[in-house]
């Protein structure tokens, strides 16, 4: 789907170098933030070493399900726009869905329907530009919000005691917003296919049971695995739901 000319640029060492630099920056940022957070929570007795290790380990298995979802999207992107851009845009920096929408829109403005037409150099340029422009908005707003609202939010969101009453707008923001967002995502999934509805129900039930077992039985080790297992059970159930609903 790419002309030879585009293929050469899309897989060029320069684009690989740019991608590698971003990965290096991300790793540096992660390690620095981790170090500072660890120092802070230990010195202020907010968490114990054990709890830090538990939270860290939870991330390993919990990421596997979501990583598979990103994997699917990334696979289709590699053929369309090349490996370095896939790694940079889909894997890191942006969300897979948003990035694909942006790249598609950019290429389309340049007259190329991604996936159908052969990708031309100008369309590749426009796709790259669209993705960079799209994230720039977020990368400006995030520090603005963190710095501007940071103090305010810190006060509201870290009550000295859980008995402190949060003002209503804060409750709406901290509880209403997330619930609305995830409800919307679930609605979109169910709208897309009935099988998704079955998969969602199975994952919810699996999560509930696994979490109950992890918290109430001797199987404490299960805690690190609940999200990963629940997602896999949900995915596997698609085979059964397909049989029932198809």
């Amino acid at each position: 789907m790419m002309s030879e000319e585009v293929k050469a640029v899309a897989n060029s060492p320069v684009l690989w170098l740019i991608t590698a630099s971003v990965i290096a920056l991300l790793i540096t940022q992660s390690l620095l933030i981790r170090k500072r957070t660890k120092d802070y929570v230990l010195s202020e007795h907010i968490m114990t070493e054990d709890e830090i290790s538990t939270a860290t380990k939870t991330g390993i298995f919990a990421t596997i399900g979501p990583a598979v979802a990103v994997f699917i999207l990334a696979m289709s992107f590699v053929n369309l726009l090349g490996a370095p851009m896939t790694l940079l845009r889909i894997g890191i920096v942006g969300s897979a869905g948003t990035e694909i929408r942006s790249a598609t829109a950019g290429a389309l403005v340049a007259g190329v329907a991604l996936g159908n037409d052969e990708l031309t150099m100008p369309a590749f340029g426009a796709a790259q530009f669209a993705c960079a422009f799209m994230t720039t908005g977020y990368f400006i707003m995030v520090p603005v919000y963190c710095l501007g609202f940071g103090k305010l939010f810190g006060k509201w969101l870290s009550p000295k005691s859980d008995k402190d009453k949060m003002p209503l707008p804060v409750v709406l923001l901290t509880k209403g917003f997330p619930v609305a967002y995830f409800s919307w995502m679930i609605y979109m999934q169910i709208k897309a296919s009935k099988i998704n509805a079955g998969v969602i129900c199975t994952a919810v039930v699996a999560m509930f049971v696994l979490d109950y077992l992890a918290q109430n039985t001797k199987a404490k080790w299960l805690g690190n695995w609940t999200l990963g297992f629940a997602v896999m059970i949900g995915m596997a159930s698609s085979l059964i739901w397909k049989g029932i609903l198809a």
Partner: peptide, 29 residues
């Protein structure tokens, strides 16, 4: 959620996911 402990615990999990996801992406590539 929303407590300092919650923010920090979520953070530690998230950082692990950064590394696990990078491994997955390299497999994709």
């Amino acid at each position: 959620k929303g407590s300092k402990k919650g923010d920090a615990a979520g953070m530690f999990g998230m950082i692990t996911s950064v590394f696990v996801n990078l491994v997955f992406l390299l497999i994709v590539i």
